[in-house]
Simulated scan of single mutants.
Amino acid sequence: MRVLIGGGSGFIGQSFSQLLKSRGHQVTIISRQPGKQKITWADVSKKGLPPCDAVVNLAGENVLNPLKRWTKQFKQEVIGSRIETTRIITQAIDKSPTPPHTWVVVTGVAYYPPSQTQKYSEDSRGGNADFLSRLVRDWEGAAELRGSEGKPTTQLVKVRTGVVLGQNGGPFPKMLLPFRLCLGGIFGSGKQPFPWIHIEDLCRLLCHTIEKEGKVGSILNAVSPSAVTDTSADFTRVLSKALGRPAFLVTPGFAVQLLFGSDRAPMLLEGQRVVPQRTLQSGFTFLYPNLNAAVDQLLS
Rank of each mutant, 00 (worst) to 15 (best):
V3Q: 13
V3P: 13
L4T: 09
G6E: 08
G6I: 07
G7F: 06
G8W: 12
G8H: 08
S9H: 05
G10S: 06
G13P: 10
G13M: 10
S17Y: 01
L19F: 14
K21F: 02
S22R: 13
G24L: 10
H25R: 01
V27Y: 03
T28W: 04
I30M: 13
Q33P: 02
K36W: 03
K36T: 07
K38Q: 15
K38A: 12
I39P: 11
T40G: 05
A42C: 01
D43K: 07
D43F: 15
V44C: 14
S45H: 13
L49Y: 13
L49M: 14
P50V: 01
P50M: 01
P51D: 11
P51C: 03
P51H: 06
N57F: 09
L58V: 04
E61N: 12
P66A: 08
K68L: 03
K68D: 01
T71D: 08
Q73K: 13
Q76D: 14
Q76V: 04
V78Y: 03
S81C: 04
R87G: 04
I88N: 01
I88P: 00
I93M: 06
S96K: 04
P97C: 10
P100I: 14
H101L: 05
W103A: 10
V104A: 11
V106G: 04
T107R: 15
V109P: 03
A110V: 08
Y111F: 15
Y111C: 02
P113A: 02
P114F: 05
S115Y: 07
S115D: 14
K119L: 12
Y120N: 07
R125E: 09
G126C: 04
G127L: 02
N128K: 12
A129F: 07
D130W: 12
G141Y: 07
G141P: 14
G147F: 06
G150Y: 04
G150N: 14
T153D: 01
T153A: 13
T154K: 07
L156Y: 06
L156P: 00
V157M: 04
V159I: 14
V163H: 09
G169V: 09
G170P: 05
F172R: 10
F179D: 02
F179S: 09
R180L: 14
R180T: 07
C182Y: 05
G184S: 05
I186K: 15
S189P: 02
W196T: 06
H198T: 10
I199G: 00
E200K: 12
D201F: 11
L205K: 00
H208F: 15
T209Y: 03
I210F: 07
K212H: 14
G214D: 09
K215D: 13
V216L: 04
S218Q: 07
A222P: 11
V223I: 05
V223S: 00
S226N: 06
A227N: 12
T231P: 09
A233R: 13
F235M: 14
T236R: 15
R237D: 05
V238D: 03
K241Q: 15
K241S: 10
A242N: 02
R245P: 11
R245H: 12
L249P: 02
T251D: 00
F254H: 05
F254P: 06
A255Q: 00
Q257D: 11
F260R: 01
G261S: 08
S262F: 05
R264C: 02
G271D: 12
L280A: 01
Q281A: 15
Q281Y: 06
G283Y: 04
F286L: 13
N290K: 05
N290S: 07
N292G: 10
A293T: 11
Q297M: 03
L298I: 09
